[in-house]
Amino acid sequence: MAVDEGLKIELGKQGVLVTTIEELYNWGRKNSVWPMQFGLACCAIEMIATTMARYDLARFGAEVFRPSPRQADLMIISGTVTKKMAPQVVRLYNQMAEPRYVIAMGACAISGGPFKEGYNVLKGIDRYIPVDVHIPGCPPRPEALIQAFMLLQKKIDGQHLTGPDRPRFLDAEAQGEFPVPVQGEHDLEPASNPGVWTVPVVIR
């Protein structure tokens, strides 16, 4: 239940701060998203550039890159996911504690990108794990990654703690562990996780 904005401002003038648990909770979460220190390919270099002095990701409370998935809230898929690497990516995602988010950074993470025709290239990480924000580009500029952060913050801010549209980590029945694909004799098995990904509809 949100507080009426006008009333909030009025009360603020009187020195009274009014908020809801939900707002406070989301405000805290969105300003301390800790990404996992996890680089895959070219985009990882731009991700590092984003954390450096010029673009300064610390402004968004997200400069604390954690090497361990247990301490991380956000996984930035920064580059091409190969079929050899995909099981490890899913396993790392499974090891992250809820609430957890995923940014698919760059064309390769979204769809395989320029390497889509490759026999060892996974055609988009969203075949195995749910993705919250996609950013196009090859590689996306640091500004684009910053925008992805802002979109993610917006998404976190809009999450409700109760009700049918509550996020996965507050839903006891939601799926928490995602099946890890197995490296078969010719390809990954299965080729996608139907619980996460169905072939999108293309309308032309």
Binding site: L40, A41, G79, T80, T82, K84, M85, Q88, F115, E117, G118, Y119, N120, V121
Partner: peptide, 9 residues
């Protein structure tokens, strides 16, 4: 091989 993107092929 974790980033084998089949550049040559």
């Amino acid at each position: 091989g974790y980033l084998h993107r089949n550049h040559e092929k």
